[in-house]
């Protein structure tokens, strides 16, 4: 019965939807809607405002430069990395250590990777609220010039969809690693997210990094994803820094899709291997009093 349920696409879809609903309840029902709204607004805007203040102090408020939308949009869309990638891997810690339900997920007739990605949907929704609010705040109060008529919407939607899939698969890989680790809270997730922040040119160009570190950024799909998102929203941002200015939008999209497929395959392999090791070593239900 379990095998049949796992092979049935309808069951997988139901599994995904229920996981998404569960994730949303966990994310949002800890308080009343007002405090949740404040929480969703204050945190991302404060993070963006730190960069805005830093930028305005040094440039004397030169918001016309393409450097500003480069930094602002890169930082804003990077929120998805923390929300989706780190969020999916955090589900392992949350379910294993906090709610102590991970073992029940493994004995239920569900696909655990589908369940984990489903839980990530709530993080995606919360992340999308934060991203939208931060962009609107930037447009209305911080001189971020996004002209809706000039935005390359098809490219934006395509880049967003590919990027979200890429982040979900990277989150799955991280979740696999988290299955094998104890005593580390979400440190692995935060460390990977922090490393991507540095090496993806999210808020500064790769040229600022020492030459021997730049190749790390060139193999990260997030580098191309953020560049494509920025270009689709504000075309002139491509001229802000020379990092990828020699590549056309389609070339960047091609590289992004290629790296997403490669990381997707790697994620499935890594997750399966880690899951096997976790089962073998009895780590699925290990509680470490985090």
């Amino acid at each position: 019965m379990t095998t049949l349920a796992l092979q049935n696409p309808k069951s997988r879809l139901r599994n995904f939807v229920v996981a998404a609903w569960l994730g949303w309840q966990i994310e949002s029902n800890w308080t009343d809607p007002f405090l949740f709204a404040v929480y969703s607004v204050v945190k991302p805007i404060s993070a963006a405002a730190i960069l805005v203040v830093m930028y305005s102090i040094i440039t004397q408020g030169n918001f016309d430069s393409p450097v500003f939308p480069y930094i602002y949009l890169g930082n804003t869309f990077y929120m998805y990395v923390g929300a989706i990638m780190t969020g999916i891997s955090w589900t392992i810690i949350d379910d294993r250590e906090h709610y102590k339900t991970l073992k029940y997920m493994y004995i239920a007739p569900i696909s655990v990777p589908v369940y984990l990605i489903g839980r990530g949907v709530a993080k995606f929704i919360v992340g999308s609220i934060s991203v939208t609010i931060t962009i609107l705040f930037g447009v209305f109060f911080l001189h971020v010039r996004i002209d809706p008529l000039a935005v390359n919407w098809p490219m934006f939607v395509l880049a967003l969809v590919v990027g979200v899939l890429m982040l979900a698969m990277m989150g799955l890989m991280l979740a696999g690693v988290t299955l094998l680790t104890a005593h580390h809270y979400g440190a692995y997730g935060e460390a990977v997210a922090g490393a991507l922040y540095l090496f993806s040119g999210a808020i500064f160009p790769l040229e600022v990094l020492p030459a021997y570190l730049r190749p790390v950024g060139y193999i990260m799909p997030t580098t191309y994803w953020l560049e494509l998102i920025r270009r689709s929203l504000v075309g002139s941002v491509a001229q802000a820094f020379p990092t990828l200015s020699g590549l056309s939008d389609m070339q960047i999209l091609g590289i992004l899709v290629g790296l997403t497929v490669a990381f997707g395959i790697l994620s499935i392999v890594v997750f399966r291997w880690c899951e096997y090791r976790a089962r073998e070593r009895g780590l699925i239900d290990r509680v470490t009093n985090y």
């Binding site: 960069l51 830093m54 450097v67 808020i203 600022v208 990094l209 820094f241």
Partner: peptide, 11 residues
């Protein structure tokens, strides 16, 4: 990250 931002904008 923040040091790199300052370096990128010439602080």
């Amino acid at each position: 990250a923040y040091v790199c931002v300052y370096k990128a904008i010439g602080a």
